[in-house]
């Protein structure tokens, strides 16, 4: 157990001394997961709003698929993306395999259903009377959607935070499609796997603590952004 204590000291040391390798890994982790959440949000918000507000054939099936997707095993996503991006695969010409774009693509696929599903749930949770009221005030469908999205912002932000939390901490997909290449596709989670594999538990614990810290800061930032509306809820 003393590894955890030593790991804690080591984590502080790595961060304070500005160890270039550690910081490069942290930067890449943020970059990959940040872009994945960004794309997941761009696609997930409209998708969630659409599912919440429109009635169409196949909607239930789509919702069931989204809910299934919220629990997609990262390693399965990684495997499919790997086969897609392989030079022998349909998207091989992109030459993305074992590069950060491949990792962003895989993590976007992981984050998207989470963000879309939680956005949908949040909008459905908004007072159902609001919609006819807005319409009677002459709001267009687009204005209604924006208003409902705004009213549901606490839940939506929670969805985005959940998406970030799941991709920054996943290892299965980035390991497969990134290859854990030093200085190029090594992120916090794959570095932790590598250090554990070689028995460098102190360094593994140190990187784990850094990962937890990032996750904490991201969630704290979301709570801050949710601001008054959340405090009202609590």
């Amino acid at each position: 157990m003393e590894e955890i204590g030593r790991g804690f000291v080591k984590a502080l040391g790595l961060l304070i001394s500005g160890d270039p390798q550690t910081w490069q890994i942290i930067r890449l982790s943020l970059e990959v997961s940040g872009f994945a959440v960004f794309f997941g949000t761009i696609l997930g918000l409209p998708l969630g709003a659409w599912l919440a507000l429109r009635r169409f054939r196949g909607r239930r099936l789509l919702i069931a698929l989204i809910y299934t997707g919220m629990g997609l095993p990262p390693v399965v996503v990684g495997l499919v993306v790997y086969l897609l991006l392989s030079r022998s695969g349909p998207l091989g010409v992109l030459n993305w395999l074992f590069t950060p774009p491949a990792m962003i693509l895989a993590q976007t696929i992981i984050a998207l259903p989470l963000i879309a599903g939680l956005t949908m749930a949040a909008i459905l949770g908004v007072d159902q009377e609001l919609r006819p009221q807005l319409r009677s005030l002459g709001a267009t469908e687009r204005q209604i959607a924006w208003t409902l999205l705004y009213e549901a912002r606490v839940g939506v932000l929670a969805g985005i935070a959940a998406g970030f939390g799941s991709v920054i901490s996943e290892v299965g997909a980035v390991m497969l499609v990134g290859g854990n290449i030093e200085g190029s596709t090594r992120v916090l989670t794959t570095a932790i796997v590598l250090q554990t594999r070689t028995g460098e538990f102190e360094l593994a614990i140190a990187l784990s603590l850094v990962l937890l810290l990032i996750s904490f800061l991201a969630n704290a930032a979301v709570i801050q952004l949710q601001g008054r509306s959340l405090r009202a809820l609590l």
Partner: peptide, 19 residues
């Protein structure tokens, strides 16, 4: 909505600062 945009901006910034 503005806060949401701010969050997105932060995320992009965080993502973009990677060398």
């Amino acid at each position: 909505m503005r806060r949401l945009l701010i969050l997105l901006a932060v995320l992009i910034l965080a993502a973009g600062c990677g060398g």
